[in-house]
């Protein structure tokens, strides 16, 4: 549907955003969250440029060194610079977890919208299928599928997307169920709007804030899952500097050098906390009246 279908554009949108940002200032954690996520995005974009060494550059005589001026996070078992590897590795984490989340959000939104709006048997079938997926521990399911498909970046993305579709679909569906009974939807039916308009123009804009909050939460879970799979060796394969993978490899050398383990694990924790704070902040900004307020 083209943009011109709106006869009246809201003029005040900007002031709405400004007041949202003002509200933000009252919650320092939110600001911290956004800053962390923003920093990691910058690192992911410019990682190789910022890194002092190539992430594959080996220097065997210099292996398992503690942090020093030359290698601020130390070196790993092949003498590679951990700092550079973490910088470059942020790409893997963010892109894999991000794409997985995007996949989950897209299909979850579609399923949730139609399931909630159509109702009846269709809704029942979809939701029971979602329950089936939810009833299996995610890591176990991911491992089983990856064992059979073989570990690869694309497969991890598909798995993450698949596993998180039910969560997103459930949230979207519950919001739609609530909105469906609102009187502005009934007014739309009374003037003979078709289902497409009602879903796309009346319901969807009211679902988006909830979706944004849910997506950011899913994102933090995806980071976990991607890191866990990497740790188990089922994710991105060496010599990629995936954080999970680095923790997994570093485990072997833990007694000789803690640094190989500490820094990638810290990076994961920091990112997850940052995304968590951000998602909390999004909820405060987008859904000020609480979760039930659509």
């Amino acid at each position: 549907m083209s943009e011109t279908s709106h006869t009246f554009k809201p003029k005040q949108k900007r002031s709405r955003y400004i007041s949202a940002i003002k509200r933000l200032q009252r919650y320092p954690t939110t600001l911290i969250g956004f800053t962390i996520v923003f920093l990691f995005l910058i690192i992911a974009l410019f990682g190789p440029l910022l890194a002092p060494y190539a992430y594959t550059a080996q220097n065997l005589p210099n292996k398992l060194q503690p942090p020093s001026e030359e290698h601020i996070f130390g070196t790993d078992q092949f003498g590679r610079d951990v700092y550079s590897r973490i910088l470059v590795g942020s790409r893997d984490v963010l892109s894999v977890a991000g794409s997985g989340t995007a996949l989950a959000v897209f299909f979850g939104l579609l399923l949730g919208l139609f399931s909630g709006y159509r109702g009846g048997l269709f809704d029942e079938l979809i939701m029971r299928a979602m329950d089936v997926i939810l009833s299996i521990p995610p890591l176990l399911l991911a491992m089983v599928i990856l064992f059979s498909l073989g570990p690869s970046r694309v497969n991890v993305i598909i798995i993450v997307g698949f596993l998180y579709i039910p969560m997103v679909a459930r949230v979207v569906r519950s919001v739609v169920l609530d909105l469906k009974t609102r009187q502005f939807i009934e007014a739309a039916r009374l003037r003979g709007e078709n289902s497409f308009y009602i879903l796309y123009k009346e319901i969807l804009p009211n679902v988006l804030p909830h979706l944004a909050v849910e997506a950011s939460m899913r994102f933090s879970y995806s980071i976990f899952l991607v890191a866990s799979l990497g740790f188990l060796g089922l994710g991105v394969q060496p010599p990629s500097p995936d954080w999970g993978l680095m923790v997994g490899e570093g485990r072997t050398w833990f007694h000789q050098s803690r640094w190989v383990l500490f820094f990638p694990a810290g990076a994961i924790a920091l990112l997850v906390v940052g995304v968590g704070f951000m998602s909390d902040g999004l909820r405060r900004i987008l859904l000020p009246g609480g979760v039930s307020d659509a």
Binding site: H6, K9, P10, R182, Q183, E202, P205, N206
Partner: peptide, 13 residues
């Protein structure tokens, strides 16, 4: 409160 879509300008309604 429930009879107007909170995301649409009222002229649109």
């Amino acid at each position: 409160d429930a009879s107007l879509n909170p995301q649409h300008p009222v002229g649109e309604a």
